[in-house]
Amino acid sequence: MTKSFVFVTGNANKLREVQQILQAGDSGISCTSQSVDVPELQGTTQEVAIAKVKAAAEKIGGPCVTEDTALCFDALNGLPGPYIKDFMGAVGHDGLNKMLVGFNNTKATALCTFAYSAGPGSEPILFEGRTEGNIVPARGGPGFGWDPTFQPVESNGLTYAEMRAEDKNKISHRYRALEKLKTYLQAQA
């Protein structure tokens, strides 16, 4: 039995990665996408994810999944965190590195949070995935978001942008969160 969900995103790169991961695992789970304008709130990654999926479920009128990504620098006590999109827009890849000048710590955690709602009024369920790494000078082309500046610990010295998509999708924060969501959805089928 194939299980499907509506992935609320207007980001073609996120959709592509999610679909690649779902297809690679032969999970019997697929997704369609719908772009819905939901407020971008401030708060912890969990607070942001819960508010976003609740708003999306109300607008769609049914079950849906949202995704939020954070990039948390150890030296900055977790910042930029869920605000990485705004930081990237303001300072770019080079600016992410400059933010760490004066610190002896380039460690960072890539964090993905998928939020699932069974529909309007339902309590959201969160699925988080983490990948540990370091912030490095941009390598590997423009990539997706901050991929050129994030070098996972388990990547043999490559940034996400330098990795083949199928290799990235085996260790990424998004993969790890999506695996948890897939397990949940398969149990519900």
Results as ranks from 00 to 15, higher is better:
residue 32 T to Y: 09
residue 178 L to D: 05
residue 4 S to G: 01
residue 189 A to C: 11
residue 158 L to A: 11
residue 68 D to Q: 00
residue 58 E to N: 11
residue 135 I to N: 01
residue 179 E to G: 07
residue 43 G to C: 06
residue 147 D to W: 00
residue 27 S to D: 13
residue 135 I to P: 00
residue 155 S to C: 08
residue 46 Q to S: 08
residue 26 D to T: 13
residue 126 L to A: 13
residue 1 M to H: 15
residue 62 G to Y: 05
residue 31 C to A: 11
residue 160 Y to V: 08
residue 121 G to I: 04
residue 35 S to E: 11
residue 163 M to D: 02
residue 79 L to E: 05
residue 66 T to E: 07
residue 123 E to Q: 11
residue 16 R to S: 14
residue 124 P to G: 07
residue 179 E to T: 12
residue 32 T to C: 13
residue 113 T to Y: 02
residue 4 S to D: 03
residue 18 V to K: 05
residue 60 I to C: 12
residue 75 A to V: 02
residue 139 R to E: 01
residue 50 I to R: 15
residue 160 Y to R: 09
residue 109 T to V: 11
residue 95 G to R: 12
residue 146 W to L: 03
residue 125 I to V: 14
residue 136 V to H: 00
residue 6 V to I: 15
residue 20 Q to C: 06
residue 10 G to C: 02
residue 187 A to K: 08
residue 133 G to D: 02
residue 5 F to L: 12
residue 44 T to V: 09
residue 70 A to R: 01
residue 16 R to F: 15
residue 31 C to M: 04
residue 111 L to Q: 05
residue 115 A to R: 01
residue 92 G to C: 06
residue 43 G to H: 06
residue 44 T to Q: 07
residue 94 D to F: 13
residue 98 K to P: 03
residue 22 L to K: 10
residue 174 R to K: 03
residue 129 G to P: 03
residue 62 G to L: 04
residue 133 G to Q: 00
residue 168 K to M: 06
residue 50 I to Q: 14
residue 154 E to D: 02
residue 38 V to G: 04
residue 182 K to F: 11
residue 25 G to W: 08
residue 52 K to Q: 12
residue 129 G to W: 07
residue 87 F to R: 10
residue 168 K to P: 03
residue 73 F to M: 09
residue 32 T to M: 13
